[in-house]
């Protein structure tokens, strides 16, 4: 398949922002796990970056003319990962939804 400039990922800046903020959140989580950052700073920062990443992805999905299944899966999986921290029952429901989505996408 010929890749045209229009297909490049830098044409979807919201997804790039979502990816960068998610990677920053993961990096900060690793630093906090290694005790390089105080939890009082790391915890709200990680949740803030995760929330920003989800917001960018949701904004992209709302605005896009075509939404791929992978983007929906990312939103549901990310939401489940956050929800399970706040309320295990709610997180489990979201996780079941994410797994159903993933399995359905494999067919």
């Amino acid at each position: 398949m010929k890749v045209e400039p229009q297909h490049a990922i830098w044409h979807v800046p919201l997804l790039v922002l979502a990816g960068v903020t998610a990677l920053a959140a993961i990096g900060l989580a690793v630093l906090a796990w290694r005790h390089a950052v105080a939890p009082a700073i790391a915890v709200p920062a990680i949740w803030g970056l995760a929330g920003a990443s989800l917001t960018f992805t949701i904004a992209r999905v709302i605005h896009a003319t075509r939404v791929t299944r992978r983007e929906l899966e990312l939103i549901v999986l990310g939401g489940a990962a956050l929800a399970i921290q706040l309320s295990p029952p709610a997180g489990l429901v979201a996780a079941v939804g994410a797994i159903s989505l993933l399995l359905d996408g494999e067919r």
Binding site: L17, T21, A40, V43, P44, A45, I46, W47, G48, L49, A50, G51, A52, S53, L54, T55, F56, A59, L82, Q85, L86
Partner: peptide, 13 residues
């Protein structure tokens, strides 16, 4: 702390 951080991140985004 988590929810305030989450709200801050969503607002910033």
């Amino acid at each position: 702390v988590r929810l305030l951080g989450l709200a801050g991140g969503v607002g910033a985004a």
